[in-house]
Design a protein around this nucleic acid. Structure first.
Lengths: 228, 228
DNA sequence: GCAATAGTGTCTTTGAGACAGTATTGA
DNA sequence: TCAATACTGTCTCAAAGACACTATTGC
């Protein structure tokens, strides 16, 4: 009983730009929708991929140059209408990447769209608007007190920077004292001994890094839910 | 580029028996693993199904007789090793059903296994142990204050019954006053006017039902996250 | 009345937000 | 010294748990 179902992956690549969540779109080089901007996606290769998570990482690497971003399974989208080639199943993932990394690796044709720009999102091909919406919803609801938003920062960061990142991810402001209490309690980050922020015309902030247990990429496992 | 990937769905059907979460297993009628007990699952039929959620409902109806249970997308499992027939993708769903309904509709060959019985779960074919574990984790983490566990009750129930259901779903005891305060605040249930529990040798409890907006099955939409 | 469970009133504890204070840098 | 932002101490407020009390049934 060979199936004629198209099996693909799509990744919602999110980053922080101008203090707002943005999604990365790439110019399609093949039909359908050749020349239009869409989520990076591709076929699952049964010969090459260990699972669909590996497919997502491979496709992401091919289209963006990213080597091992933080990636998590989002949901699976399917039906006869979402892809003009026929009945399709797409396993969607989302990834969080610092802006610097993305800009230094990705092609110049990449576009970043503010996730609150619904008009532009609605114009995306396939059901990519729905997928992006689902990813944003997931990040918003999961960010409040998980290590997730920290992956939008580089390897080191200050607590005020981290707080801003959390605020953007969650979509609303956080009380400073509460945020620091929570970080203390969650035991998520540790100070980089002696290292301080530099070059600002005010009191420098302590630099922090994710604790090793969280810094390790959880991306290899293909679980829809990761702890912490 | 036709794919040789096997495309299927599996459903983790959960119910409450003897004050513990149980998963429903069914005797397989075909190879592979013919005669063994496993999650109800089957191929996605591109001709017949509107999406994989519809596939799950169809398969569930074929194997259990259930017409429109509460169902939600869980995650997608994939790889070359999970199915002996070859590289496969399985979109997993979970469903919550009252025990009465399950017993009255399902075949006598159905088995209910306590989800804490890890030995029996580990013996399941395919990667069904992993899928069940994922479903239980999801129900546990999502139950605390959503309408989800209420689907394990019949159409009417008392607040003490509902509290027990929540406790079983979450896996830990709940403070009675807090539970009632929360139910009040969440505006989830309403008393069935005049109807009281009967036949007990103590004070009878008020019967309640889910408010219509929650009672409506959300199962048709194929979203991994449902509100409320 | 007694056992058993339903349902409520209220005190205590815990955790989050508000706010104002001190600390440290460059200019 | 001042502007600017990092960091902290502490008060207030709201939600959650503990506990005891009342209510209503069958026997």
């Amino acid at each position: 009983m060979p199936s004629s179902i198209i099996c693909s992956v799509d990744t919602v690549l999110l980053t922080l730009k101008d203090n707002a969540l943005h999604v990365a779109l790439f110019k399609r080089e093949k039909a359908p929708f050749k020349g239009e901007y869409a989520l990076p996606g591709g076929y699952v290769h049964a010969q090459a991929d260990a699972d669909t998570g590996a497919s997502a990482l491979r496709v992401l690497n091919e289209k963006t140059g990213l080597a091992s971003p933080y990636i998590e399974q989002l949901a699976t989208f399917s039906g006869p209408g979402r892809d003009p080639r026929g009945w399709s199943v797409s396993v969607a993932y989302f990834a969080l990447v610092p802006l610097d990394e993305l800009l230094s690796l990705s092609p110049a044709t990449m576009r970043l769209i503010d996730v609150s720009d619904t008009a532009q999102l609605q114009a995306l091909p396939f059901d990519h608007a729905k997928i992006v919406g689902s990813a944003v919803e997931r990040v918003r609801s999961k960010s409040a007190y998980s290590s997730l938003p920290a992956h939008l920062c580089g390897p080191t960061f200050t607590l005020p920077q981290l707080q801003t990142v959390y605020e953007m991810a969650i979509g609303e402001p956080i009380n400073k004292v509460s945020f620091r209490r929570k970080m203390e309690e969650m035991d998520l980050v540790e100070p980089v001994t002696g290292a301080m922020e530099q070059g600002k015309k005010h009191r420098p902030a302590q630099l922090y890094q994710l604790k090793p247990k969280y810094a390790k990429e959880l991306s290899v496992t293909d679980r829809a839910f990761n702890p912490g």
